[in-house]
Amino acid sequence: MKKTRRKIPKTRIVNRDGGSSVVRIGVSNNRWRDPYHLLLTLCWYKTLGLVSLSYVLANTLFALAYLAGGDGIENARPGNFFDAFFFSVQTMASIGYGAMYPKTTYTNILVTIESLLGLIGLAMASGLMFARFSLPQARVLFSDVAIITPYNSMPTLMLRVANERQNWILEAQVRMSLVRTEISKEGDVMRRFYDMSLLRSHSPLFALTWTIMHPIDESSPLYGVSAEEMVEDEMEVIVTFTGLDETVCQTIHARHSYIAKEIVWNMRFVDILSKTRDGRRSIDYSRFHDVMPIEN
């Protein structure tokens, strides 16, 4: 009797770059509940835009507060918003040109409050910018596709990684895992992770390129798996990279994932290593992602 495979519902958990794509129910998805983490993860132009908007908004509110107190700024035009706004800018930044200064008790109280908030805001903005600049960022390049090809007569899953910076990454380590959707005998659907052994998972000095290889032997979670089964079971190969950046002496991390359609069979990577006329090694990064059919 022919064995039929149980249909597995589409419940992909991890997207292409390894990030979460799960819809969370019953918990708040408001990122502003963790503003520090949000500000660290926003792109630079959004962060600068948010800081600039907060600065303008704060000075606008204080300008309106100054205007509400009447003619309390010396040498400012009574009721003029722009004079009050620029006086607020000078106060918050502790510039103190001396052309405009407070002349009433109400205005002096506002100046005192704004000066204190300005010091706090400056410290927070400086700390945020320093944290973003000092945050170690890995510039590790992963190949767009992974390949399954024979290596020493053994089917092997391969992918490329490269260091895009012109420095050394010390004690580089790579881990590879297979995640797939499975159904238990009780009918429970779950995503299972399987460790994948590598021919070499550690490099004491990583500066150029590295071909990561997983032999598909009897102990491999990919043993006997076809391309169709990889698609049906929503298999995904997740790769994590860690190492010590010698320039900043900090640990860096990188990750990437390959879904079934990004794993090509019976292909090999194009050779990108060569030598120049003076005998130096040369790497052609323009062909880093290229693959070609296996020659029979």
Rank of each mutant, 00 (worst) to 15 (best):
T4N: 12
I8R: 02
P9L: 05
K10S: 05
T11L: 07
T11R: 04
I13V: 01
R16Y: 02
S21R: 10
S28L: 09
N30M: 11
H37D: 13
L42R: 09
S52C: 15
L53M: 15
A63E: 01
A63G: 09
Y66P: 07
A68L: 14
A68F: 11
D71G: 10
G72N: 06
A76S: 11
R77H: 12
D83T: 09
F87I: 09
S88V: 07
I95C: 08
T104H: 10
T104D: 07
N108S: 01
T112D: 06
T112N: 09
E114F: 05
A123G: 11
A125H: 11
S126N: 10
L128Y: 12
M129Y: 12
M129N: 13
P136G: 15
P136F: 13
P136Y: 11
A138L: 12
A146S: 03
I147M: 02
I147R: 00
P150H: 10
Y151F: 14
N152G: 08
N152L: 15
V161M: 02
I169R: 00
I169S: 03
R175P: 06
M176Y: 05
S177C: 14
L178R: 01
T181C: 06
I183R: 04
S184C: 15
V189I: 15
M190K: 05
F193V: 09
I216F: 00
I216R: 01
Y223S: 10
S226W: 02
S226Y: 08
A227N: 04
E228T: 05
V231E: 04
E234H: 05
T240M: 10
D245V: 06
Y258K: 00
I259L: 09
I259A: 01
A260D: 06
V264I: 12
N266A: 14
N266H: 11
V270D: 02
I272H: 00
I272L: 03
S274F: 03
S274M: 01
K275V: 07
G279S: 13
R281L: 09
Y285T: 02
S286I: 03
S286L: 06
S286G: 03
H289F: 11
H289M: 11
D290W: 03
